[in-house]
């Protein structure tokens, strides 16, 4: 169980708070999405969770114990993150080197490293590509490698920071299906950060951020039902929502249900 308690953050040269009293809990093994438009505070929140920024006030608890703010390294071992731009997070010269990077930093002995890298790459289906250089991979493949590199250190939480926003539709599908698989097979908590409402359908729980406030939270169904909040948060409604709104006064229907209804 990871809890953010009353997190507030203000950038030095800014009057407004980037984050306003954010409290979020996520259960181990859950798939949580955080939705928000540009400037809603998503990235700031990620940086705080990762220990890159220190909150102006508020605490982070892991299993009830507060995290030592002076020791962000401890946080980094619990959390792994996949960033937006697939090129800018590829450290190694080849796929296999990149996945090993996190383990090298932790000082893992060579034999264990080889095993772990292999199983992580197999998990995301990139083992055949292990000797490829990054420029020979598609965006989706690069993100899959990044996921393997994030999972290889066996983190409690895998954060996907808009990890699909630079991908083509196929790459996006690849990444989402891998996440679904990880969610089913591991007890890693997935924290999925996005501005795209279409990507949250597999989530257990959703938070909607607007200007540093949590404006709505709940299951996918609950969040979808309040379309006014979605619209006022500048989020574009997916077609099935628009349709279900038109068909039956806003009650949420999943894509399949809409098809059936039609």
């Amino acid at each position: 169980m990871i809890s953010l308690r009353d997190i507030t953050y203000k950038y030095h040269n800014d009057d407004a708070y980037a984050l306003n009293h954010i409290s979020i809990d996520f259960k181990r093994g859950s798939f949580v999405s955080i939705l928000g438009h540009n400037g809603s505070g998503k990235s700031t929140l990620v940086k705080i969770i990762m220990g890159i920024l220190r909150p102006t006030s508020g605490d982070i608890f892991i299993d009830g114990k507060p995290v030592d703010k002076d020791n962000p390294l401890e946080l980094q071992r619990r959390f792994s993150i996949v960033f937006q731009n697939p090129d800018n997070q590829f450290v190694g010269a080849t796929v296999i080197d990149d996945v090993a990077f996190g383990l090298e930093n932790l000082g893992v002995p060579h034999e264990t490293m080889v095993e772990k890298v292999e199983s992580a790459l197999k998990e995301v289906g990139m083992w055949e590509f292990r000797n490829h250089e990054p420029h020979r991979l598609s965006g989706g493949q690069k993100q899959r490698v990044a996921i393997a590199g994030a999972l290889v250190t066996n983190p409690d939480v895998l954060i996907m920071d808009e990890a699909t926003s630079m991908l083509d539709p196929d790459g996006r599908k690849e990444v989402l299906s891998i996440l679904k698989k990880i969610h089913a097979e591991r007890d890693t908590t997935i924290l999925y950060i996005t501005h795209d409402l279409r990507e949250i359908e597999d989530s257990d729980y959703v938070f909607i951020l607007r200007k540093g406030h949590v404006v709505n939270e709940g299951t996918v169904r609950e969040v979808y039902e309040d379309t006014d909040i979605l619209v006022s948060s500048n989020l574009e409604l997916p077609y099935n929502i628009k349709l279900s709104k038109a068909l039956c006064d806003g009650a949420y229907m999943s894509y399949e249900e809409v098809v059936q209804r039609l």
């Binding site: 990762m50 890159i52 390294l73 980094q76 071992r77 959390f79 792994s80 993150i81 960033f83 800018n88 997070q89 450290v91 990077f101 996190g102 930093n105 932790l106 590199g149 994030a150 250190t153």
Partner: peptide, 8 residues
Amino acid sequence: IAMEVRGY
């Protein structure tokens, strides 16, 4: 940042 969060 990516290197740092991966513990480098």
